[in-house]
Amino acid sequence: MTTLDDRSATIEHLDRGPLTMDELAEVIARDIPEGSFVNLGIGQPTKIADHLPRDHHGSATVILHTENGMLGMGPAAHGDDVDADLTNAGKVPVTELPGASYFHQADSFAMMRGGHLDVCVLGAYQVAADGDLANWHTGRSDAIPAVGGAMDLAIGAKDVLVMMTLFGKDGSPKLVPTCTYPLTGVGCVSRVYTDHGVFEVGGPTVVVRETWGIGVAELRERLAVPLATR
């Protein structure tokens, strides 16, 4: 199913600190194959749009899907380009690119659920080694539950990528043996992109592809999931 590339050996970048979120967005954008149909989740993943591969005319070579009903979404709209009838899933005004198309909600989620979308990048509270995703609810009893399209996206795309920091503000790892937050989807994530490293999940072991500012040995100490290298 996957359209992502494979790489042979684990790379450790120990001569620098962890990635900024913009640098991480660039790393993810580089891994998205040309010609893909891609959905970028609300929040940090929207940054990826700025780094997507372009052809020699400067046109993006991937087609962005927004679940409120559009393929061929362009950059955020400013000034006179703002149109109340044209927003993204985060309700931010956006623009349309040549070749864009519009469709209703049932069609928008049918193309997702039906396995037509190649890649989706989501934020997360937690990802488990087996690919379970928690990104919609903190589990706090006084929180108002709101799921939007998160559960549909989690099980819809051929490859679900997560973009997040590896550690929470309190230092606790977000790549975990088992999610303690309420689940969004079961075994749905294929790859986790973080400021400290990129991990393949959902297989028999978690495989480290690349690290920044930290080595695999230290990651093994700080994460409670067994890590493999290649």
Binding site: E67, H104, Q105, A106, S108, F109, A110, M112, R113, D142, I144, P145, A146, V147, G148, G149, A150, M151, D152, G156
Partner: peptide
């Protein structure tokens, strides 16, 4: 939060379908 309205949360794609 004051218990004056009921809520059923449905994933967006299931809501549409």
């Amino acid at each position: 939060l004051s218990g004056r309205i009921e809520l059923e949360v449905v994933p967006q794609g299931n809501l549409a379908e």
